[in-house]
Design a protein around this nucleic acid. Structure first.
Lengths: 189, 189
DNA sequence: TTCTCCAATGAACGACAATTCATAATTTTC
DNA sequence: GAAAATTATGAATTGTCGTTCATTGGAGAA
């Protein structure tokens, strides 16, 4: 793993455990096994570092959705199931990422970088498309508003996953996944 | 409105628009029409100020839930409907509060004040009770896990409302409320 | 009017952490 | 193997606020 990669890993870990504002560059550097100043050879600023952490983490979900959009044969429920799977596994593999994305997203609301903005919007609109398709095929209620439902589902799924990662160690991944999936599709039906 | 009240109002506005860490005491004071140092006559520290802002904001929801728990005649769907109403109206009256509560909650994860911890947990467990009651009466699926569903619903509802307050000006409050309500109860049925 | 008391002020203090940069270490070039 | 180029270092610099406190102002008592 090269140095830039090491810094990114360390940043994910530190940002997600204490939040962006409480994270110290010196701590990230220490965790990455380099000197404080070295961080600035790879990232112009702390904000840019957060931006790259975000992009790296989000891209897994983004890739999954792009992949799903090519699979014409799956019905909407199956697609949603696979999406829940992807997000769940992402969080399972690195619980810290989830919290960070959920909680730090607000930093991108106003002055988001083009790239971050584009990734988030793209993800939301693809989820929205899956729901729209489901309405058309009759899988889901006609009264569902895809845009609003997308927002609700993303919020709920993410919060459940992030909260679980922090507080619900008694539950198995499978249990959480099944529960989320049921709440999502029943809500749309 | 006395001075303490003015400071709280100003703090809600500033915290919610820029977040806790980016908020300057000097700006809050200015907005409240007092000198910077005066803030410290009413609040020991910036953290205590956030705590009181949180308590003040959350208590509306808390009160509603306590109120609902006394109304034995309502069925679970009606109770949930009223809860959605309460939260929606709270946000409608002050859109900034919602964002703050949702996004700043993380500050209370580890070293929460007793009071804040208690309020949040109490709210969640009351929502959970409503769901449990609904399962018992057969309104909702037996397979629903009340604790997980509560987490999912709170996350989804809150995110939808907060996001709407910021980005979905084209929708009417009624539309959002109806959509959220449908997604919640259908998900449980 | 003068004195007392306490709320209010806001400039100054101090702590903290992002960023820089003179220097050192390492690698590449020839 | 020396010079040049690149990469790394971490102490020093710098700016930013949270917080303090010496001073002010004004309301009420005598």
């Amino acid at each position: 793993m090269n140095k830039k990669e090491k810094i990114l890993e360390a940043a994910i870990s530190v940002f997600s455990s204490v939040g962006f504002h409480n994270a110290k560059i010196s701590e990230i550097a220490e965790k990455a096994g380099i000197a404080t100043g070295t961080t600035y050879l790879y990232f112009k600023s702390k904000e840019i570092l957060l931006e790259e952490v975000f992009i790296k983490s989000w891209s897994n979900i983004s890739d999954c959705l792009v992949d799903l959009s090519t699979k014409k044969k799956l019905n909407s429920n199956d697609k949603l199931k696979q999406l829940v799977d992807t997000i769940s596994i992402l969080i399972y593999k690195n619980k810290e990422i989830a919290k960070m994305i959920l909680f730090e997203e607000r930093f991108w609301n106003d002055n988001a970088s083009e790239k971050v903005d584009e990734m988030v919007n793209n993800t939301k609109s693809m989820l929205s498309s899956i729901i729209q398709a489901g309405i058309k095929t009759g899988e889901y209620r006609k009264s569902v508003n895809p845009q609003l439902a997308t927002t609700y589902i993303i919020g709920g799924l993410w919060y459940l996953m992030a909260y679980w990662a922090e507080n619900f160690e008694q539950y198995k991944l499978e249990t959480i996944k099944k529960e989320a999936y049921k709440l999502i599709i029943k809500g749309l039906e």
